[in-house]
Write a protein that binds this DNA or RNA. Structure first.
Lengths: 336, 336
DNA sequence: TTGTAGGCGTTATCAG
DNA sequence: CTGATAACGCCTACAA
């Protein structure tokens, strides 16, 4: 077990074969006789050989690094996502360079430029702002995988979450818990087919499916896209006099604000109103009350995104592929 | 402006010099005539040349990647720290590979092994658990920079935070705000010279400095190292009947729990009790009330840690160096 | 001050 | 199935 810099030639010599055969064994490229393979593997073990990535990268013309652009790595959700992507990328022998977009369309576009400039082999882009394919089209030819809510018309590799199905399941969960007057908290603009629209549609579909007539008054538009906005929306729900006994929020963050707003008015979750969120961010488990939520399989998402980027780097000509993550309803105190 | 793979030779040809001269210009190594330098720089601009890091790394025997091991990248504080380290490392041409230790001594040790296995050029280790040099000694020779509270007896490169001075300044801030019965919330064990002990010492020093006799009953030991533990400690403070009008908490996380515990008893921050934390984690600004806190200069820490690791990689024989970050008292609602 | 030769470790290619 | 050769792009050492 030598220290440090053992090369393929060393291994080859030890195994009594050529360096090429060692390379072939390591990459299971062409057929190698069982005999030779055995000897090479033994020599690798014995010598403690480690492939030198720089040499491989030089040969292959790649950098061995993929980019991951997220809005804010200081946000628990994206931190967790980054950790998962890093882990999955490592399985494929890639390092991950993390960029922050600041949740700005400009930042998202800049991440792409930056990624190319740094000679990263590809980019996993967690899109939240860019909502038309236009700014991404000039990047054709550079491997990009979209990870997020925006759809972008099927032109790119894309891993998304089960917006309709997840929210429908969440709504049904509330119905199963006995709720009859289920409010929904959405963003303002339901004209475009955004993530928010999709989630709203899931809510309606579930109600109709269960034979409940959707009451338009039960749709509450967020006062502002902030924690405070969610809080004041919670107060409005409490003040509405509509007999709300269940709330579907389009994200856990919004859900927490709503809980706070309800409590401002003395309305308790889950005693008076049951409430469910979406995303299963880490805080949801420790929030008081802990939040029931729609939990897309985050690890699955990360693994799929990495698979996609790796295969696209290998073959840029592949047609665009779209995947939707599996999900589960996580039952916690807020719908108990 | 060619696309893609422009090499040094291309630039050299364009500038009418040898590749070596281009290399020398890029690295400002030896003396290059102004004339040649001009022409090379022009050629670089014109061709859009980019250095190929894989080739350089192969030559230099390095990987161009440094490790950063933190307890939990999903934690906002460490997410922010990671972002800063990544940014600073990029200035030096390094990529960062993020590891998670799970805040386990075992994980911290594993990160070192992993870092070597992945052939990272060095490791910035955010230590929270390892508290003796022993487990780190076998790594002598591998470039490691410690970033965190543990001291480890001056054997390693180390960037730390102003534990005593920061807490003293926090305590003085409360005194300046008119507080006279200032409680301190600490961890249990003040025998070893841990971060918590240092912060407690800063509190006492400030009181004595201002001629206030420390009252031992005003030291509250955390019921448990958790949000809930901090919360119940807050309730104990409210129930103590000691006339507490100020609280120094040894971290922002603890501070938030204490605020909650005080409010459980109808005690308002800052109206009834003023309170200050330590760390300036991102949530502190959005917490209600927003938290006054001791804010070590996080960017400075990141920059210094990167400087240290880069210089140590360059010269492993350097003596160990220790730095303490500058800090500021951030005044927010909780001490208004 | 500038240039030439050679090699870092790996792998594509093609001959054996 | 295996191996010799060359090349990826850069930089150390030495020569001019």
């Amino acid at each position: 077990m030598k220290r440090g810099k053992v090369t393929m030639s060393d291994v080859a010599q030890l195994a009594g074969v050529s360096p090429m055969t060692v390379s072939n064994v390591i990459n299971n490229r062409v057929k190698v006789s069982d005999d030779a393979r055995e000897r090479v593997l033994a020599a690798i073990r014995e010598s403690g050989y480690q492939l030198n990535p720089s040499a491989r990268n030089l040969r292959s013309g790649r950098s061995g690094v993929i980019g991951l652009a997220v809005p804010q790595i200081g946000n628990a959700y994206f931190g967790m996502l980054a950790a998962l992507v890093i882990e999955e990328a490592r399985r494929h022998g890639y390092h991950v360079a993390v960029e922050q977009t600041g949740a700005l369309a400009k930042g998202e576009a800049a991440a792409i430029a930056q990624s190319r400039r740094l000679q990263l082999d590809g980019l996993i882009l967690s899109v939240v702002e860019i909502d038309s394919p236009a700014p991404l089209v000039p990047t054709q030819g550079y491997p990009i995988v979209l990870l997020g809510e925006q759809d972008l018309a099927g032109r790119f590799d894309h891993v998304t979450v089960p917006n309709e199905a997840g929210t429908a399941a969440a709504t049904e969960h509330l119905i199963d818990q006995g709720c009859e007057r289920i409010a929904v908290v959405t963003g303002g603009d339901l004209d475009r087919l955004t993530m928010i629209t999709r989630r709203y549609n899931g809510y309606r579909a579930a109600l109709e499916d269960r034979g409940i007539e959707p009451d338009p008054r039960l749709r509450f538009t967020l006062d502002a896209l902030s924690w405070e906005g969610a809080r004041s929306t919670g107060r409005r729900i409490a003040d509405s006099g509509l007999g709300v006994d269940g709330v579907v929020a389009f994200s856990d963050t919004v859900a927490m604000g709503v809980v706070r707003g309800l409590r401002d008015r003395g309305v308790s979750v889950p005693d008076d109103v049951r409430l469910i969120g979406f995303d299963n961010v880490p805080e949801s488990a420790v929030f008081i009350p802990s939040l029931s939520t729609v939990s897309p399989d985050h690890r699955w998402k990360a693994a799929k995104a990495v698979d996609l980027i790796v295969s696209r780097i290998a073959d840029p000509a592949l047609p665009p592929r779209q995947y939707t993550a599996p999900f589960a309803i996580i039952r916690r105190e807020s719908t108990a």
